[in-house]
């Protein structure tokens, strides 16, 4: 049984593409066969985050227009076995694809893959409609900021209106230090205002910038960020995984304090 998951957010720049790359890498590490589809036609980015930008021959629009077969356009990942990328077209725009065409393509991919992950463009226009047309469920990415959470709420409403259920929330770029000083909402705060269940919290870490510089996702590398992504992947597979204590730099005193139920 294959599953089609769309990674979406509404607001741009909250980490959809990075999340898609890491979840793909993580699911492949858990021995799943995964294809990542970049549906952001005209603003192709997933290829560079994965470090596969030099290998593109054909793209999503070529496949849909029948210029090539899906397997000719798909690029095998350098590092992870079982991970493939279907890149977006860079010189076309969102209107090159219709929701029906996207659905037909994704249904074709279902035969060969355990997971089909769709990286959705920002916004709620045609690109978004194309991406969600074929999805079984969605991962909504947000950062703990008023603007991002507001857009996430809008997206959650639209997903439900289109009959997409079992959606989950990823709170990305949580700055543990700022939360401690009361200058950033906690993941619990975000979950409280949105009517959606949490599937993961990813802390802010400069390592993500470095990983994007070099085109190598962090999932499963042993770091806190990499482990956060792996935990999300395990939860996608239906496992119960406890949430990480992101505040690993806690002093001895506060650790003793937490022993007595004090935070």
């Amino acid at each position: 049984m294959s599953e089609v998951i769309v990674v979406t957010s509404g607001k741009g720049g909250v980490g959809k593409t990075t999340t898609t790359a890491n979840i793909g890498t993580g699911l492949a590490k858990l021995n799943k066969k995964v294809v990542l589809v970049d549906t952001d036609i005209g603003l192709r980015n997933l290829d560079v985050v994965l470090g596969l930008e030099n290998r593109i021959v054909y793209n999503l629009v070529d496949v849909i227009e029948g210029n090539c077969k899906p397997e000719q356009a798909m690029i095998k990942d350098k590092k992870s076995d079982g991970l493939y990328l279907l890149p977006a077209a860079q010189t076309r725009d969102k209107s090159a694809v219709t929701p029906e065409e996207m659905k037909a393509l994704v249904n074709e991919l279902r035969k060969d893959f355990d997971y089909i992950i769709l990286d959705c463009p920002a916004g709620i226009e045609q690109g978004f409609m194309n991406a969600i047309a074929a999805a079984d469920r969605a991962l909504v990415v947000t950062t703990p900021e008023v603007s991002a959470v507001r857009d996430a709420d809008r997206i959650i409403g639209l997903l439900e209106a289109h009959g997409i259920k079992n959606n989950r929330l990823i709170v990305n770029r949580l700055n543990v230090e700022m939360v401690k000083h009361g200058n950033m909402m906690t993941a619990e705060d975000v979950v409280e205002v949105l009517s959606i269940d949490l599937i993961g919290v990813v802390p802010y870490d400069e390592k993500i910038v470095v990983a994007t510089n070099t085109g190598s996702p962090l999932a499963g590398d042993g770091s806190i960020v990499g482990t956060s992504y792996m935990n999300i992947c395990s939860r996608i597979l239906g496992e119960e995984v406890p949430y990480l204590d992101l505040d690993s730099k806690k002093g001895i005193l506060s650790k003793i304090g937490s022993l007595f139920g004090k935070q």
């Binding site: 008023v146 507001r150 709420d153 809008r154 009361g182 200058n183 950033m184 909402m185 705060d189 205002v193």
Partner: peptide, 19 residues
């Protein structure tokens, strides 16, 4: 009130009118 409290309050208000 911390700025995160303010953020949460503003967010709740804005979502009520959005919804």
């Amino acid at each position: 009130k911390t700025s995160s409290d303010i953020a949460k309050d503003r967010l709740k208000l804005v979502l009520v009118s959005d919804r």
